[in-house]
Simulated scan of single mutants.
Amino acid sequence: MHITPAHFLEHRVDVALIGCGGNGSQMLTGLARLNHALTALGHPGLRVTAFDGDTVSDANIGRQMFSPADVGQFKSIVLVHRLNAFFGLDWVARPIYASTSELIHVGPGITIMCVDSAKARAKLATALSRTSTYLMDLGNRASDGQVVFGTAGTTEGTGARLRWPYEVLPELIDTTRPEDDTPSCGLAEALERQELFINQAIVTPALGILWEFFRHGRLTWHGAFVNLKTGHVRPLLVPTERQQ
């Protein structure tokens, strides 16, 4: 079992969300709901900074949390403005691609990686292992994917260590593997590459992990592998001290 450090339960927590696309737009919306529930229970809440230099295209509508009126606008600004107005938040949108220097200003806390390439992950992985207390990585292919939540080092009094996501799945930052980064021109073409609800399927267990982390102060699982074709969801259990 991994025990949540006390300061994550007693103080407002800084969260950096990197990427506001398929997984990121769903995740940001879920984080606002999570924050609302936590503050209702007496937690100081979350302070989220969302990074994404991309703009909304026609192909994003339907798969991501955008409408036709959002086309051409920055994804991060659209989502954060909407959630701030809806929930009365003070979250920050950064319409740029996250860099090491930018993440340092957010401060240690939780970084949530919602990017779609090993190159983007690898660019930040080393710096994140030094600046962020916890990292959650979400990734997917056409109909399957995974979420892994972990930490780079050991934190005193937190029980079993959660393995660093790129220690669990080093292929996530392997830039030698071929990747298809050709943009889709429309929703129909995008749906040929990814199932409509794969992002939602990945984000649901990710939010479940964070809920356990904050609400119950412990974790017995810190990731999940999801396959929409077979209907399987396999949890990634927190390793025992012997396994570590």
Score class of each variant (00 low, 15 high):
H7C: 12
L207G: 05
V226H: 01
A152G: 04
A59T: 09
S76A: 14
L237N: 10
V71D: 02
P239K: 00
T4R: 07
A160F: 11
F8K: 07
L210P: 14
R47E: 03
G72F: 02
C20R: 02
I104T: 13
M136R: 08
G107E: 05
A152M: 08
I209S: 06
V71N: 09
H2W: 13
A118E: 02
G88V: 13
L169W: 06
A69R: 13
R33V: 11
G24D: 04
L124H: 02
H2E: 00
G217D: 09
V168R: 04
R63W: 03
G24V: 06
A120H: 03
Q200D: 09
D180G: 10
V56C: 09
A59R: 02
V48S: 06
E192M: 09
G21L: 04
R141F: 06
F149K: 01
D137H: 10
S67M: 13
P170K: 00
H81W: 07
G53D: 04
P95V: 04
L83A: 06
G62M: 07
G139L: 07
I202D: 02
P239Q: 00
T100R: 12
E102V: 08
I61P: 14
D52F: 10
A122Y: 08
A16P: 15
A118T: 07
E195C: 08
A160N: 15
N84K: 04
A85V: 10
H2F: 14
H81R: 13
T176L: 08
P178R: 01
L28R: 00
T131N: 10
C114N: 08
P205N: 03
I77K: 08
L162N: 02
M1R: 10
T126S: 15
V80S: 01
W221H: 13
N23M: 09
M136W: 01
L79V: 11
Q243E: 15
G231F: 07
G186T: 05
T220P: 09
D181E: 13
Q146G: 03
H81P: 05
L210D: 05
A40E: 13
G72N: 07
E179H: 04
L196I: 14
T126H: 13
V80C: 05
C185Y: 03
I198A: 03
W211S: 13
N23F: 03
R130Q: 14
V92A: 02
E241K: 06
M27D: 00
R215F: 04
M136C: 09
R130W: 05
T39R: 12
A40M: 12
Q244C: 09
R82P: 15
P5F: 00
A6P: 15
G53Y: 14
I110A: 08
H232T: 15
L124I: 11
P44D: 00
E10F: 07
A37R: 12
P178V: 01
R121L: 08
G21H: 01
E171S: 12
L172C: 04
T151W: 07
D174S: 09
L38W: 03
A50S: 13
R161P: 15
M113Q: 12
W221D: 08
D58G: 02
P68C: 06
